[in-house]
């Protein structure tokens, strides 16, 4: 591995927390990475300003899928619920941090989710995000906690690989090194997704990656995202059964809106590794 190791450069691993079911996956992934790098785990709970705003609109009602009831909003109840939710997330964070033996911190922000996220990305070394929840999550809030199929749990396929996007943007090897560290901790494969314009460039990037990962004992799989499209990334992530996807913050594949599309479509947490600033 390069002398500029991930351990020396990643000190803060943040995770965005809200009430969605995917949070647990994101929290776990962030905690594992922080533990592998001996970094601090930072929980960030963002109170969505939209939720505050919609309480002011008199005709808006909340549907509660579990009880199938409707109720108008009011600002006091919403704030109380958000505080309660934040407390729950903080407790979860602290529990996981204790289990992994790492330090943690927790902060609450209020604002537009995406804007706040983008701001956080610039402040921490790694930001862990999870999908905002697909439509089926609406139904998952209904009380349907029964198992239909008779599959034994042993037969359920476990997620395995750690996928990482590696391109020719600046300092993308930071994400690669973080992925290597995480894969080692999880004792799983590394799936390196190379974003390159040509075969020659792909080969060059692969060689570079191989150099970076030369001391890596985990199996490494290299594949090229041929079209350099977000859809290719999603497909590659799903097909490799990835339990986590690491992407450099300046990778062109997930800039802007594409990040949110990516989060919606991949079912695993996405770790955005901040571009390393010189001298940091």
């Amino acid at each position: 591995m390069s002398e500029l190791t991930a351990e020396t450069i990643i000190r803060r691993v943040a995770v965005a927390l809200d009430a969605s079911a995917q949070n647990s996956q994101a929290l776990q992934a962030a905690a594992e990475l922080a533990a592998s790098l001996q970094a601090e785990l930072e929980g960030i709970f963002i109170e969505d300003i939209n939720l505050i705003r919609l309480t002011e609109l008199p005709f808006i009602r909340e549907i509660r899928p579990a009880s199938m009831t409707e109720e108008p909003f009011n600002i006091q109840r919403m704030e109380q619920e958000l505080r309660s939710l934040a407390r729950q997330q903080q407790q979860k964070l602290e529990l996981v941090a204790r289990e992994k033996g790492i330090s943690c911190s927790f902060s609450i922000r209020r604002g537009h989710i995406r804007a706040e996220m983008m701001e956080v990305v610039t402040e921490v070394d790694v930001l862990t995000l999870c999908g905002p929840g697909r439509v089926s999550e609406i139904f998952s809030r209904q009380p349907a906690a029964f198992t239909l199929r008779a599959d034994t749990t042993a037969r359920q396929q476990a997620r395995s690989a750690v996928s990482v996007v590696f391109g020719n943007a600046r300092n993308e090897k930071r994400a690669l090194m973080a992925a290597a560290s995480l894969a080692k901790r999880l004792d799983t494969n590394i799936n390196v997704l190379i974003t390159a314009g040509s075969d020659a460039e792909t080969d060059e990037l692969q060689r570079e990656a191989e150099t970076i990962l030369e001391s890596q004992t985990q199996p490494v799989n290299y594949s090229r995202l041929i079209g350099n499209q977000l859809s290719d990334l999603v497909l590659a992530t799903i097909s490799s059964n990835s339990q986590v996807l690491l992407v450099n913050s300046n990778n062109t594949l997930i800039t802007g809106e594409q990040l949110w599309h990516c989060l919606e479509q991949v079912s695993c947490p996405v770790l955005i590794v901040r571009e390393q600033i010189a001298g940091n």
């Binding site: 009430a19 969605s20 300003i49 939209n50 939720l51 705003r53 919609l54 002011e56 609109l57 808006i60 009602r61 909340e62 549907i63 509660r64 899928p65 579990a66 909003f73 919403m78 619920e81 958000l82 309660s84 939710l85 537009h112 995406r114 905002p132 929840g133 999550e137 609406i138 809030r141």
Partner: peptide, 22 residues
Amino acid sequence: SLIHTPTGITLAPIRNDKVISI
């Protein structure tokens, strides 16, 4: 837009990806 709330879901009018203010 369909929005998740802490205890459920709701539908709210949006402008520029933001819920319209009162």
